[in-house]
Amino acid sequence: MKPRIAIFSLTSCEGCSLAILELEDQLLALLGGVEIVNFREGMTERAWDIDVGFVDGAVSTPQDEEEIRKLREHCRTLVAIGACACLGGVNTLKHQQPPLEYREYVYGAGAKWFPTTSARPLSAVVKVDYELPGCPMVKEEFLHFVKCALTGKQFRLPADPVCTECKKLGNLCRYEKGELCMGPLTRAGCRAICPAYGSVCEGCRGLLGADAVAAAREVFPARYGVPFDRIADRLRLYGAYQDDGENAISGVLQPSR
């Protein structure tokens, strides 16, 4: 029997689910290998026996929390896709303001009818089996994940930084332009798309590990005259919650609550 996969969205722009639709020609091949159920962006049928559930978006409301718990129950394997679901993503920017203030900004007079919580990655609420980070998620990595699932190969995120992909492409390093790029600290897999198009990496795929963060604490103040806090602020944009699962660095970038 074909594995049944499903795609869900919590609080997000749903860009990650759309990235799957963007696979276009490969999507047809994909459909040959799996059965897609419950895909809100693509179809309406609902069924609740799911092998692999992909979820984008952060847990940012009480409903999100309820939904993710339910999804966890119904999905044998739960995969967080995109920066929001993996690291909190840009949703966490709201933590810069008091809750009532941002709720009034978004919902106006009806704010009190729309309760929200702090924005968290899925792993803050339920057990997550795999994470496919990035803002948006990298569609080729999604495809690779599905291939691994179909062929029984072990899936691993790249353990190298963005710089490796950047150098293989032959890009000019942004540091040569006097810009501070987060590539050396950030997990590869996006094919260094930002430096390739002339801007710096903002770390949307998350930190590589504790060693790289420790190096950054030395490098930025001593070699560039930039306090590490300012670097951490930048990394918080996409990744307020960082824990790469093997080097416990959570706490480094978590917002104070």
């Binding site: 190298d160 930084p161 420790a214 030395e218």
Partner: peptide
């Protein structure tokens, strides 16, 4: 201490 292990 400064090395990112970035491989550049």
């Amino acid at each position: 201490q400064r090395c990112y292990s970035c491989g550049s």
